[in-house]
Design a protein around this nucleic acid. Structure first.
Length: 567
RNA sequence: CGGGGUGUAGCGCAGUUGGCAGCGCGCAGCGUUCGGGACGCUGAGGCCGAGAGUUCAAGUCUCUCCACCCCGACCA
């Protein structure tokens, strides 16, 4: 490929909107360009990387016996309505109608449709286990696209779906995908860790996310510094040490706290730490008001709450709700609430606290949970840095991560709703037991950049680099240089190597700077200077060392280097 | 969806009390250079995000809308 004809130019400066290092380099190196918020075009360089990422994924899926197919982007409404997702996904999907008014959705994922196909193609238990997958565009009308390719509104995902006869089968398929994912990410140079994740509102038992720890990530991961416990903060828990009981505590007593409506106010007024207080949140659920009791120094975890309350969105109680339960805004406490389901976080210890009195400008001191009020014990708090690991008691640390893949065992959730069954060994009809397994291609590509760059540009892992060799002719106007360079390019290409040939009439500085920016792993320079000695220069992108080799040995040397690369 | 910010040439930006729309990079032509983003000369490139208003006069003031970015919310 001649660089003079390459569609896509490098940028000396990144557009102002690009914030993360990967986003900036992705734009500067002409990997992709935005078309609208959250919609990107792959330029030729980026497209080559995306195809290599896909190739690795394909090889690893094929290795575990998954079969590639392809389902459409636009999907009919009916199956979505059958599973209830037509409505549930309404806010975050793109929809359209055909000329007859039939409704379609730009697919969000393909569980519904792969089940339709499974019903048609799999009649008997003898045909399972089966895993199918495809690479297909997904549409998600995210309210906030961000950080270039990391969160977009249309993207290609590899989604695989397993079908098994029972839970044991599903576990095997799940484990096979888990192993395939580990190999897949390793091959593309991503140091992905598998973390436990929330299964979401769709039920299911087990889910893992593959996270690459990086500051550009939007997920927060709790990681044990002692054992191998790793969990998304949406799900992470902690070990809570048993505390001494509150024997001998005084009875609860009202104290005057005029205007102190927040934990901050109380800390100042009463000169006590946040942990000395109880905070009580009033939320709405389908069945009425729910009171959440937490220690004053602990934040509620919204995903945990949503799952617990089985609601899509958390809603705070309104004025009417306050009246119904007898709460007073700013002075809510667990004692004396009426008509409210009371949930007490497991972080709340059995010891005296200061809590709201449900009376204006008043709190109660020496409120002892269990003695003065009771409620269902739940885990709805945010785990934080330094908390104890739920498995081993070691220290947890919190890191940001980019979710590059997700595997999810949903069991019979879809099959039951869609009545997707097969004939089992005992002659009865049974629902398919399934899982789904996704990897976002664009996100993976940018994550590779986020984690493989220096201050000059990208350092592609060879397995996904857009080209193997960047050949630079200096100066290209010199006939001997040009002739030699083109001969070398032809020879390299004949041996199957992919070469980007910089045949532009540019200064050495421009060419080297572009080569560093684009980040092809091997750079070969054919120059007037070195040609006088009959030599060519070879340099690895990630190394500072130059190698001068005789022209006649250049080809063999490059082939040897490339042969040693992990693929 | 809440809060904040930005829209002026392909990219980065300046534009004062309202008075000729600019700079750097990039781009084109010619010449000089030629191993780390070279230099000179000449030149092209603008509905100043859109609409309405105020004014003799609007990039600049007012209103409405749109787009994009950041934080949060949301997110198989």
């Amino acid at each position: 490929m001649r660089q003079s004809t390459l569609f896509g130019r490098t940028l000396r400066e990144a557009p102002a909107e690009a914030q993360t290092p990967g986003h900036r380099l992705m734009l500067r190196a002409a990997i992709a360009r935005p078309l609208a918020a959250g919609f990107y075009t792959w330029l030729p360089l980026g497209f080559r990387v995306a195809k290599k990422v896909e190739r690795i994924i394909r090889e690893e899926q094929d290795r575990i016996g998954a079969q590639e197919m392809e389902m459409p982007v636009l999907t009919p409404a009916e199956p979505w309505k059958q599973t209830g997702r037509w409505e549930a996904l309404e806010p975050i999907t793109f929809r359209t109608k055909d000329h007859n008014g039939r409704e379609f959705m730009v697919s969000y994922t393909h569980e519904e449709f792969v089940h339709l196909h499974a019903m048609q193609e799999i009649q008997s238990y003898r045909q399972m286990p089966a895993i199918v997958y495809h690479f297909q565009s997904k549409g998600r009308d995210e309210t906030r696209a961000r950080a270039g390719l990391l969160r977009v509104r249309e993207f290609v995902m590899k989604d695989a779906y397993s079908f098994d006869v029972d839970q044991a089968g599903l576990e095997k398929s799940y484990a096979a995908e888990h192993r395939a994912y580990a190999r897949t990410f390793e091959r593309m140079g991503l140091d992905a860790i598998s973390v436990e994740s929330d299964t979401g509102a769709m039920g299911g038992d087990v889910a893992h996310e593959f996270q690459v720890l990086n500051e550009a990530g939007e997920d927060r991961i709790a990681i044990c510094t002692n054992c191998d416990y790793k969990a998304n903060l949406e799900k992470a828990t902690r070990k809570i040490a048993a505390k001494a009981s509150a024997d001998g505590a005084s009875p609860a007593t009202p104290i005057s706290t005029p205007g102190a409506t927040t934990i901050d106010d109380l800390e100042r007024t009463l000169r006590l730490p946040a942990s000395a207080f109880l905070k009580t949140l009033l939320l709405r659920s389908k069945d009425g008001v729910v009171a959440i009791v937490l220690p004053g120094d602990r934040a509620a975890n919204e995903p945990k709450l949503r799952k617990l309350l089985d609601v899509a969105n958390l809603e705070f109680a309104n004025d009417a709700d306050f009246a119904t339960v007898g709460g007073v805004a700013g002075f809510v406490g667990p004692i004396g609430l009426r008509n409210a389901r009371v949930l007490v976080d497991v972080s709340v210890e059995t010891r005296p606290y200061v809590a709201g009195a449900n009376k204006k400008d008043t709190h109660l001191r020496d409120v002892v949970p269990g003695r003065d009020f009771s409620g269902e014990r739940v885990d709805v708090h945010d785990v934080r840095e330094g908390d104890a690991c739920p498995r081993c008691g070691g220290k947890l640390e919190i890191k940001r991560g980019i979710e590059v893949g997700n595997i999810f065992a949903y069991g019979t959730y879809y099959a039951k709703k869609m009545n997707a069954t097969f004939e089992a060994e005992d002659g009865t009809r049974k629902p398919f037991v399934g899982g789904s397994y996704g990897i976002g291609i664009g996100r993976a590509v940018q994550t590779i950049i986020e984690t493989h760059h220096d201050d000059r540009g990208i350092l592609w892992p060879p397995s996904v680099a857009p080209f193997d060799v960047h050949l630079i002719a200096l100066p290209v106007t010199e006939p001997e240089v040009r002739t030699t360079a083109e001969k070398v390019v032809a020879e390299l290409e004949t041996t199957g190597l992919e070469v980007l040939y910089d045949d532009r009439d540019e200064s050495a500085g421009v060419k080297f700077a572009d080569a560093d920016l684009i980040g092809i792993p091997l750079r070969m320079t054919v120059s007037k200077r070195n040609l006088k000695e009959g030599k060519v220069e070879i340099k690895g992108r990630s190394s500072a060392d130059l190698e001068l080799v005789p022209l006649s040995e250049g080809l063999a040397r490059v082939r040897a280097i490339v042969a040693a690369w992990p693929r």
